[in-house]
Amino acid sequence: MGKYKYVVIGGSAGSFQSVTRILEALPVGYPLTIFLTLHRLKHVRKGFVEALALKSKIKVEEPKDKSPFFQGKAYLAPANYHLYIEPGNTFSLSTEEPVNHSRPSIDLTFESAAYVLKEKLIGIVLSGANRDGAAGLKEVKDNGGFAIVQSIEESQVKTMPETALHLSGTTNEFTTDQIIEFLLKQI
């Protein structure tokens, strides 16, 4: 396994297709841990994780507060909670105020993951309509992690990847295929 051991992915409007393609492409036994913070309807608790799991070969679940995370699994931020990565490889959930009008907020998951996982982390910001994820991706980069933004041309809604690109200063603007290729190289 390479130097990266964790992947944090943030997405909003127009990101669902890329997320499902990424999950579909990762093989059984994929050794990295995936964190997904995707903007979602706050009142709809059920259905989203099942939709993501449909084609995924790795297990996708919504973590409970203070539950541990493990290699080779994907974890989706639950509806109406922020998702933090805590020291000691556990999650915390939070009902604090929305950030960037969002709960879960991509920035909060990214910032906590960057703080705890540092240079072992890959951060990916996908298509979306607001600024959420930009400050978080900068933290990933500033803490020694690898920062990726979905190709602006490919993104269905460009605001989120554009803002993340400018604020983080990363030059890694990848299409979904390139993201998949990069993630498969980490095995």
Binding site: E86, S92, E96, L108, S112
Partner: peptide, 9 residues
């Protein structure tokens, strides 16, 4: 308290 949220607050 849970580390990251209390630090952030």
């Amino acid at each position: 308290y849970a580390f990251f949220s209390i630090k952030r607050r």
